[in-house]
Nucleic acid binder design. Structure first.
Lengths: 127, 127
DNA sequence: CCGTATCCCTGGCGATACTG
DNA sequence: CAGTATCGCCAGGGATACGG
């Protein structure tokens, strides 16, 4: 290592900048955010319940989203060895902190829905 | 209207829930977040400069992203009637508040890069 | 019930060329 | 320089069927 990372503010360190962008890209997608929100509110849920909550997600996408989240250490997947199978998902501590970080975005969106709709209407009017 | 919206916490109001989800989906994408970040740090930028900062974005995607952000009221587009054309973009007040909301996510990502990488390595190992 | 595998197709996105 | 238009690709994601 050529330099002390503590010389740089976290988000300006060129070593992590690319990684951060990549992680943001991974995590900032519709379904991930929704799963995060749902698990935050409802705690541990089994696959089918989670799917029902996700309104319109396909089984494929939910599985895919959960796998990626598990890989990133955001959720814990618990398989209960019973028949029929029962698999439950809950957030890790890391997942909880991410949900917390995103919380501000949800609040922002809820708070500014009207203004955004108005802006869109005005924009579409001019065109 | 059948009920008083003030009876519900903002994010549980069924009328706005769908809209919020839609807005999140719109706004939580890689390029939007990056543009938000760049304009926050650098203030007003012209198209070409912004493109250079966006490392790997195509002209099409940048135009598209900026249009959508303008429509949502996140950026102001200023056309200087000179030759050659000069167009500058800057955040609106709404854009600034969104950037602020996303700030927590950037900090989270920067702070947890190592843990995420470790989690991924462990996950891939088990497979 | 949960997950994988296969097929298929739409639409997102890059590349390129062209205009004001 | 900034933006639009057109073409073409290929990957994301739905639908379906099957397996543990």
């Amino acid at each position: 290592m050529d330099y002390d990372p503590h010389e740089y503010p976290e988000d300006l360190d060129p070593r992590v900048e690319g990684l951060v962008t990549e992680i943001i890209g991974r995590v900032a997608d519709k379904w991930t955010m929704l799963v995060l929100e749902i698990l935050t509110e409802q705690g541990e849920l089994r696959f089918s319940k989670l799917r029902a909550e996700c309104e319109g997600i396909s089984q494929k996408m939910l599985t895919q989203t959960l796998r990626a989240m598990e890989r990133d250490g955001l959720v814990i997947r618990t398989v209960h060895p019973v028949i029929p199978p029962k698999v439950e998902y809950r957030l890790t501590e890391l997942g909880n902190t991410l949900a917390e970080a995103f919380c501000g975005v949800w609040v922002w969106a809820a708070r500014n829905v009207d203004q955004i709709e108005a802006s869109r209407a005005a924009f579409d009017e001019r065109a």
